[in-house]
Amino acid sequence: MKLLFRLIGLSLLLVATVVATAGIKAQLSDHLPAPSYVNAVSYKDGDWKWSEAKQGTVKGRATFSARRPQQPLVIYLVRIGDDGKPTEQGLFDAPATLDVSQQGGKFEPPFAVLVRKQSVKFLNDEEKEISHNVYFLGDIEADLGIFDQGDSREHEFKEAGEVSVHCSIHKRMDAKFYVAPSPAYAVVEADDSSFEIKGVPAGRYRLHTWQKQKRFKDFETTVEVTDGGTANVTVEMKR
C-alpha cells in the first residue's frame, strides 16, 4: 500500500513538473527577446491588400548638383493621409528570403535593399571549420548569435531603416542593408539616373531618398498615384 501511495505521489509530482515546465516555456515564448528598433520607422499596414488595389506607376530621373558617388540611390514611397502623415501602407507580399553567404569571411552580397517583413538567411558556408557571428547596428540592433560551419540564421526585418551588419569575431566582415517600408521603391544605380516604380496602389505618397554614400541632402516630394496613370517626378539631389 505504501508503495502504491509513493508511486501515485511520484506520478503527481511528475505531472506537476511537466505542467510547470510547459507553463514556463509558454511564458518564455511570449517574451522572446525582440530586436531593438533604435531609430527604425514603424508603419501600420491596415487590412487592405496591394493585390486588390487599383495601381499606377511613378517614374522619373534623378539630377545631381555635383558629381554623384558611384553608389546606389534608393527612391521609396510612403503612403500618406490628408494630413501629410504616414497612413496605412497596406498588406503586401514580402519578397523571397535573401540568402547571404559568409564564405571567405565576407558577407555576399555586401549591400542589399530589403523590404519590410522580408527575411534574410545568413549561411555559414565556409569551406573550413570557421564560426561566424552576425549582429546589427544602426536603426535596428540585434545579435543573431554564433553559428558554426554548415549552420545558418534567419531574421525577418519587421521595421524600416538602415542596418549595418557585422561579425563580432572577424574585424573586416561588414555589410549594409537598407530596409524599405514597402515594395514601392527603386534603386538608381551608379550608371543610370532614371527610375520606375510599377504596381503602386493608387493614392497619395511622400517620395523620399536614401543614399548609400551620402553626398546630397535627401530629397522629398508629394506624389499622387492614379489608377493606370504615371506620375513623373524629377528627383533633385542638391548639396
Binding site: 549582429y135 546589427f136 540585434a142 548569435g145
Partner: peptide, 10 residues
C-alpha cells in the same frame, strides 16, 4: 561588447 544587444534567434 555585443553581449548586451538583444539576442534574437540564438
Amino acid at each position: 561588447t555585443v553581449n548586451d544587444l538583444p539576442k534574437v534567434g540564438e
